[in-house]
Design a protein around this nucleic acid. Structure first.
Lengths: 142, 142
DNA sequence: GGTCAATTATTGATGCATCAATTACTATAA
DNA sequence: TTATAGTAATTGATGCATCAATAATTGACC
């Protein structure tokens, strides 16, 4: 049949378990969810962008993006405005307050990631990234 | 401003992205969620086990375990009975139907994992597993 | 024996993701 | 110009995870 090695199962289990444990710790350490930080980061780099483009970049469901942005707007971190030339589109951008806050979040994130990858040499990190990329490609081709 | 290596961030991003994309595909391919399959698998190996022990093994919240088991019971895959010697404990076990079904699920899972790790040599898999384990340890020590 | 602490399981509230349906708008073709 | 198709954003329903609070049971200690 299609017998797969015990080792392969262990790898899959670890990948799954790793994420499950890391995600909540990330939120507790940084004070923000991974998804939301990704959105903010994309906004930081893009300056101004439509929700649609943003959604494609962060690869989260439309509905989820809308809800994140609504909350971020309430907190005064982002501003939204309709595209005057095409009212279907909504431009999103960071407020000044948002820009300063995201810097702090990103620093927290970096600190967090450094701890996670503690003890890995440059070469090892390169190897790991390469492997993860290959797995990602396999997943894409399903 | 951003002072942790770009590479480290890429690794973290890939780990996160990988799981986000893999999880739903796993469910579609195998017809069951990763969490639920883990529960069934544990039950398969344990024969009969208390919910509490099961919960510790699969490392999911008590409440979630209760809800999973309730649904699995409705589907006729598991049976629950109180421990007569201590009514606080509930023993859980697979039905015969459950046992046959889980075998099929596991095969699907193996097929899925094999595709995900396609192209990896024995040595590479070993290296990868080792790295993931090290990361896991780092996460544990947070 | 009766009170108190500890343990298991359940339920409720909440957060976040998805899909499906809806609304609002634009562009194109008859 | 009007009907139609397509796109963006929103809202609603649902699923699954967590934490917090509660109920039920047991054991220990006075």
């Amino acid at each position: 049949m299609f017998k797969c090695s015990k080792q392969e199962e262990l790898i899959a289990a670890r990948l799954f378990e790793l994420n499950k444990q890391t995600m909540p710790k990330f939120e507790r350490c940084t004070g923000i969810s991974q998804s939301r930080l990704e959105i903010l980061r994309e906004l930081f780099e893009a300056e101004e962008i439509t929700q649609r483009e943003l959604q494609k970049k962060v690869n989260i469901d439309h509905a989820a993006v809308t809800r994140h942005l609504k909350q971020l707007e309430e907190k005064g971190m982002v501003i939204r405005r309709k595209n005057p030339a095409d009212n279907r589109f909504t431009y999103v951008s960071l407020t000044e307050e948002g820009k300063t806050k995201i810097a702090a979040y990103c620093e927290e994130k970096q600190r967090f990631i450094s701890k996670i990858l503690d003890g890995f040499s440059e070469l090892e990190r390169s190897t790991l990234l390469n492997m993860l990329t290959r797995i990602q490609e396999n997943v894409d081709n399903l």
